[in-house]
């Protein structure tokens, strides 16, 4: 059945359509007014299983809500607020001044949580640099 190997030609994306899309994206990116001078990285721990849905997609968990509403969702547990503790918070200024706050005795697993915090921090820094490089390419 050689025919099966060939996919139908894909529907052509209308050129004007693509132009519109790119135009939209371009404006969106050029108009962002974001603060790239500082980075705030926060790591929290606690019980928040009610926000995670483990049933969906054949046992794979999904996060029900977008993170932006996460803290809001945390408070909804039958009227009783979930217990959430701060593991660490890092503030990096544009001149690389860094302020670290690390909680004491969050739990016996504190080391792993702190490792995760460091990874988030590294990841945030690297991503920001990549994004700035992109803007350099992009902004005329």
């Amino acid at each position: 059945m050689p025919d099966e190997k060939f996919k139908e030609p894909s529907p052509t994306v209308g050129a004007s359509n693509l132009n519109d899309k790119f135009n939209k994206i371009g404006k969106q990116l050029l108009n962002v007014a974001v603060d790239f001078t500082t980075i705030n990285v926060t790591t929290l721990t606690g019980n928040y299983t009610h926000i995670i849905n483990t049933k969906e997609q054949g046992g794979k968990f999904t996060v029900k809500t977008d993170f932006k509403n996460f803290t809001k969702e945390l408070g909804k547990k039958g009227g009783v607020e979930a217990e959430v503790k701060l593991v660490a918070h890092t503030y990096v200024d544009f001149d690389h001044d860094t302020v670290n706050f690390v909680s004491d005795g969050v739990n016996p697993n504190g080391d792993f949580l702190f490792d995760i915090h460091n990874a988030s921090l590294n990841s945030a820094k690297t991503s920001r640099n990549a994004f700035i490089r992109m803007l350099k390419e992009f902004v005329p």
């Binding site: 974001v34 929290l44 019980n47 996460f70 949580l113 995760i116 945030a124």
Partner: peptide, 17 residues
């Protein structure tokens, strides 16, 4: 464990104990 980056790369992570 959930990590979310916002548009200016601030990050917030939730990690269970």
């Amino acid at each position: 464990i959930i990590t979310k980056f916002d548009f200016d790369f601030d990050a917030i992570t939730f990690a269970p104990p």
